[in-house]
Simulated scan of single mutants.
Amino acid sequence: MTETVHRVGPGGLRPGLDPQGHIEREGSPERVPHAFRPVVAAARDRLPDVLGDRLHSAYLYGSVPRGTARVGRSDLDLLIALRAEPTDADRDAVRTLGDDLDRAFGQIDGVGALLYSRARLLSDLERYDLGWFVACLCTPLLGEDLAEHLPRYRPDSRLARETNGDLALLLPRWRDRVAAATTEAERRRLVRFMSRHLVRTGFTLVMPRWNGWTSDLHEMAEAFARYHPERAEELRSAAVLGYEPTADPGLLRSYVDDLGPWLAREYTRVHGTKTPRPGD
């Protein structure tokens, strides 16, 4: 794995960058594994019926459009842009669609959908967070591609700050979720979620120095390890758990009481804090 993240492309570029040093858009319809194409087709066909004229565009993200999804293990991740702010009725309709797809297609393990308005995705406030997410991590599925209205992005400190510079704000909420998790299934979901979030935060902490992009958790952990060997094994372990979670309550406590606070302090020291959002 170390060889992978140390790989340098033509002209000395890190992986994930184009010849000008911008982050390349990951994923494409051509990379969707054959087993998942019927699921993607069903989502594409049904979303207009579910949301009607409120739907502006829809995107795939995650392992399915990257071509790394595992049958029976991976979920289908969707980002949906609406012409107005999403309502509870929109969320309920999309949740019902996700449940229907999950029941109909055994090759997926659930459907996750993010709903935002077109205006928010293109807003100045979200330019280096949700905007970057659409432009670099999302694959168009339906409608106008909002990436055409967004800039090219470099793996710099501003991007690091605006994508993951809010860990300190999240940790109190995480502690509440850990305290409320009473079943193994709930704890396993939290381990998967928090492991992934911490690895991505650790990676973006060092991303400007590493000067590249990857969405692979193991590669992220190895990039982090180059600059923080004192925490390397914790990130490597979290990368494994991001794919194969356990239900260990002690691990969750270590995330919210040790690794998480350390990462939050280091992030603030290096990149500052994310621009506050309404309701923070």
Score class of each variant (00 low, 15 high):
His149Ile: 10
Leu150Val: 11
Leu150His: 04
Leu150Gly: 07
Arg152Gly: 05
Arg152His: 13
Arg152Phe: 02
Arg152Asp: 07
Tyr153Ala: 03
Tyr153Lys: 10
Pro155Ile: 04
Pro155His: 07
Ser157Ala: 15
Ser157Lys: 06
Ala160Pro: 02
Arg161Glu: 07
Glu162Ala: 02
Thr163Gly: 00
Asn164Trp: 08
Asn164Gly: 04
Gly165Leu: 05
Asp166Gly: 12
Leu167Glu: 04
Leu167Met: 10
Ala168Met: 07
Leu169Arg: 15
Leu169Thr: 11
Leu169Ser: 12
Leu170Ser: 08
Leu171Glu: 05
Leu171Arg: 05
Leu171Pro: 01
Arg173Phe: 06
Arg173Ile: 12
Asp176Gln: 14
Arg177His: 11
Arg177Asn: 10
Val178Ile: 13
Ala180Ser: 11
Ala180Pro: 02
Thr182Glu: 05
Glu184Lys: 03
Ala185Leu: 09
Arg187Asn: 05
Arg188Phe: 03
Arg189Glu: 15
Val191Tyr: 03
Arg192Gln: 14
Arg192Cys: 08
Arg192Ile: 09
Arg192Gly: 07
Phe193Gly: 11
Phe193Gln: 15
Phe193Asp: 13
Met194His: 10
Ser195Leu: 04
Arg196His: 09
Leu198Ser: 10
Thr201Phe: 00
Gly202Val: 06
Phe203Thr: 13
Leu205Ile: 03
Leu205Ser: 07
Leu205Asn: 07
Leu205Asp: 04
Val206Cys: 00
Val206Gly: 01
Val206Asp: 00
Met207Ala: 13
Met207Ser: 06
Met207Phe: 01
Pro208Asp: 02
Trp210Gln: 09
Trp210Pro: 01
Asn211Trp: 14
Gly212Met: 04
Thr214Lys: 10
Asp216Phe: 05
Leu217Gln: 13
Leu217Glu: 09
His218Gly: 15
His218Asp: 14
Glu219Arg: 09
Glu219Pro: 01
Met220Ser: 11
Met220Gln: 15
Ala221Gln: 05
Ala221Asp: 03
Glu222Tyr: 11
Glu222Ile: 04
Glu222Pro: 04
Ala223Asn: 08
Ala223Asp: 08
Phe224Val: 12
Phe224Glu: 09
Phe224Trp: 09
Arg226Pro: 00
Tyr227Ser: 13
His228Lys: 12
His228Phe: 15
Glu230Ser: 15
